[in-house]
């Protein structure tokens, strides 16, 4: 079947004027995230009451805890995708690992920032270098910042993917240390232990927190998909070479013009493209 680039099965990506990678699925997910964030804002600032212990500062928890969960999710998914890459040599797995870890680093940084802002009025300090939870989380984020830096080092695609995968998997060993540091070294941290499951949170506070976690996880899925597609596009730019890609893009545009004036989209464009 011969088809114009503007009428393909991939929705927006099949338009010759398309400069993004949106489709129905990701747009729906994006709208759900937006609605979810509005709901979280209403719950966090309109409906939920101040906490007995933390007072209004509990409202920081509605972004701090989901950010921490998202960073763990990003790193775990990245490590799993890296393992899959080493097993199957799948380029998609490598790109997924990169996307997921980059999003994980983003939310890891946000976890540290929001935690420090919460810590100042609560503990009387933004940061404590002797606190095992704070420092181990910082180390975890820095390990994955190193992963991102490693991806920027030269080399062919397979070499880069292989060494990055090894670092991603090795760094994941830090995740349980961060998670359980408050239990293993409870005398060396200001950080509270897990509070989601201890039954101390009031109903609406717990509901707001759980809603925020769900919305943030949806956002992670959306953002990682976007970042994955960006990685795919940038890989294509590298693979095809800029000059060849531009020539093909012009051929596509010309195909569209030919179709508009009633000329066969095949003849000239295909021949010129092959000659190029």
């Amino acid at each position: 079947m011969n088809q114009s680039p503007s009428t393909g099965p991939n929705g927006a990506a099949d338009s010759s004027d398309t400069n993004d990678t949106g489709d129905t699925g990701t747009r729906t997910l994006g709208v759900l995230c937006l609605l979810g964030f509005v709901l979280v804002l209403v719950l966090a600032f309109g409906l939920s009451e101040p906490d007995d212990e933390q007072n209004d500062l509990v409202r920081i928890m509605y972004v701090h805890v989901p950010s921490a969960i998202l960073s763990y999710t990003g790193f775990v998914v990245g490590a799993l995708a890296s393992g899959f890459y080493l097993w199957k040599k799948s380029l998609a797995a490598d790109l997924l690992a990169h996307a997921s870890i980059e999003v994980g680093v983003l939310f890891g940084v946000l976890t540290i920032i929001t935690g420090a802002i919460w810590g100042q009025p609560t503990w009387g300090t933004y940061w404590d270098w002797g606190d095992v939870r704070l420092v181990s989380m910082l180390v975890l984020v820095l390990l994955y910042v190193g992963y991102l830096a490693l991806r920027g080092v030269g080399g062919d695609v397979n070499t880069r993917a292989r060494r990055s995968a090894v670092v991603a998997i090795g760094s994941a060993a830090m995740i349980p240390i961060v998670r359980y540091s408050v239990n293993w070294w409870e005398n060396r941290t200001l950080h509270q232990q897990a509070s989601l499951t201890d039954g101390k949170l009031e109903d609406l506070t717990l509901f707001t927190l759980m809603t925020s976690i769900v919305v943030f996880l949806l956002f992670y899925a959306w953002l990682t998909t976007k970042r994955f597609r960006l990685g795919w596009l940038e890989h294509q730019v590298t693979e095809l070479g800029l000059d060849e890609a531009i020539a093909q893009r012009r051929a596509e545009a010309r195909t569209g013009v030919d179709a508009a004036v009633g000329k066969s989209p095949h003849s000239d464009t295909v021949r010129e493209g092959r000659e190029a």
């Binding site: 011969n2 680039p5 099965p9 991939n10 099949d14 990678t21 998609a92 890609a245 989209p265």
Partner: peptide, 29 residues
């Protein structure tokens, strides 16, 4: 990046990995 990549190569799941005019026109196969 999308401005530099042929449309048929912009989506990884439904398109060939290496592009060309042929793949643009036959992207649904």
């Amino acid at each position: 990046a999308a401005k530099q990549v042929p449309v048929a190569n912009q989506r990884w799941m439904s398109t060939p990995k290496s592009g060309g005019v042929d793949s643009v026109e036959g992207s649904d196969t």
